[in-house]
Design a protein around this nucleic acid. Structure first.
Lengths: 157, 157
DNA sequence: TGAGCTAAGTTGGCAAAACCAACTCAGAAC
DNA sequence: GTTCTGAGTTGGTTTTGCCAACTTAGCTCA
């Protein structure tokens, strides 16, 4: 086996580090962006991203290994069996993280012609953004948020 | 110059790709996690992450270059001048993206002892999560969201 | 005055990962 | 039975990351 499922990050007590252990390698989040817009086939990812085939094979197998995507053979009538890579529910939930990055890029690394994608509500097309929400489902301002350590936080390092 | 400010991703028309061009290299998001919890000095990042000093220097200079952090000398009384790396407002806004990843990791890559960090409102300590919000400041369910292309979306590839 | 200490790096050699082109393999079409 | 296409694998080169050692500057203390 040439590829090692990514680093020791996945054994970290920090959820951000564990997420990055699965998602943080080069190309992975772009592969997921394509998957969220409907790509399912090896050649589709390859054409859309220009990624080397060995790297793509490695990333897809990592995503399958950690339950972000599934690899399933399928057959169109009159064609031979092919492999389809589909997002699991866990994978679909990564839309939130990708939209966070998209929203940040729209604001802080703007493109001359403006954004190429907008985030909308299906039902009425109203603008949707990513933000902080309290238990009543109401938005919380960024400055009113804080992260706090739990008892599970490692005391001695 | 040994280091090239990261790839051609920053010239992409996709905001996710541009964000990853600045933030997507190995270690970068973990450096930002430390910065959001108060780290400012080279040696602090190094000790917290165990990152090689040349890689850390490269990542910090990329973050400064793109306006995510500032590098400013400061002097404690009776000590020589040192460098402090501080988040800009753009950098502080990345808390949203990091919390998205943390929330995903909490759910899909759980740690045996439970999460080590919780997301809270400062004023009353109530739980806060990251999610989709409409123009009235109310939460939108994930399944009710969609991304749509604008006129700026590149037609011919 | 100069020897030691610390922070913030830089430099050089080695190992791992990414990139690229060429090749494989299987089934369908011709 | 030759060609085509999708989904990869293989081999060689380049880039990136990792590690240890070194550098530089200003402070402290003898």
């Amino acid at each position: 086996m040439l590829f090692m499922a990514s680093s020791k990050l996945i054994d970290s007590s920090c959820s951000i580090a564990r997420s990055l252990g699965v998602l943080g390698e080069r190309w992975t989040l772009l592969i997921l962006r394509e998957a969220l817009t409907g790509a399912t086939r090896f050649a589709e990812f390859r054409a859309a991203l220009g990624i080397a085939p060995d790297v793509l094979a490695d990333r897809l197998s990592t995503l399958v290994e950690y339950g972000v995507m599934t690899r399933e053979p399928y057959q169109e009538p009159g064609a031979r069996v092919r492999e389809a890579y589909r997002l699991t529910e866990a994978g679909r939930e990564l839309q939130l993280a990708l939209w966070s990055l998209q929203q940040w890029g729209d604001k802080h690394l703007p493109w001359p012609d403006g954004p190429t994608m907008l985030r909308r509500r299906c039902t009425d097309g109203a603008a949707v953004h990513v933000g902080y929400i309290d238990e009543q489902g109401h938005e919380v301002r960024a400055g009113d948020t804080q992260a706090v350590r739990t008892a599970a936080y490692p005391s001695a390092d």
